[in-house]
Amino acid sequence: MLMNGVPVGGLSHPLEWMVKTMPDIAVLIKRVPDTIAKIIVVDGTIDLSGVKWIISPYDEYAIESALQHREATGGSVTAITLGNADCDKTLKDAKALGCDELVRLWQDGWESLDSNGVQSILAGAISDLGSEIVYCGKAAADTNAGSTGPGVAEKLGWASISNVVSVSFEEGGVEALVPVAGGQAKVGINFPCLLTIDKGPNEPRRPNVRGIMMARKAEVNLKGGQAPAATISVISKSTPPAKPPGKTYHGAENVPAVVQALRDEANVI
């Protein structure tokens, strides 16, 4: 066991300390519709049949942090997602970027799980894998809820830090830079822990062709999950109210009217 990077307690084997300095890193990724996809609503629900799917953009930053962590300290990175076989492509995209292992979690009716259910399945898998640190995006691009990371940490009984923009890697823990009122704070945290990652100075890397060809051969480990029954249900969905049409003014004589509209209606001056 490590405390602040220093081994504590008896070592059962001389190599244990070496081994323990190479953390098992997990990164949670989600398959979402491309953020530039045209969203079509049919009969009150979103028709996703023609949509292109991508890794949720904040999750790309999480992958980047996980890979940098491995590069700094060694260890291995396991990418985890929840979903059907279509999500294997998302995992393979992560493999092409450099993740070592791929795990897809599956449970019948996964699409109707509530946040509590999703968090339970993810937390269970992380426990089984023995991960010591988990990275995930601060929010998924589809639901934008931001509940998964903190929720998983709570289920695991781990400490977590949200909205991390930069991480430095220590033995036995990490230091994370997070925005606080009026500036940034550097927070130290020991393993086991979970970080949700925001867009930061480290742009996600591109894959290279070797990674792409390795991804082709990569195996996805399928694991079943057990989630509690949903306690949250969607009662109704509605589209935002239509935007009122814009107004057009012509000629210098309308300047007072424009100024008044900007002040009274648009509230911008």
Binding site: A96, V209, R216
Partner: peptide
């Protein structure tokens, strides 16, 4: 297109 052909196309297009 195979998955890797799609990935290669995306890689090169984004880069270019």
């Amino acid at each position: 297109e195979s998955d890797e052909q799609q990935m290669i196309r995306k890689l090169v297009r984004d880069w270019a």
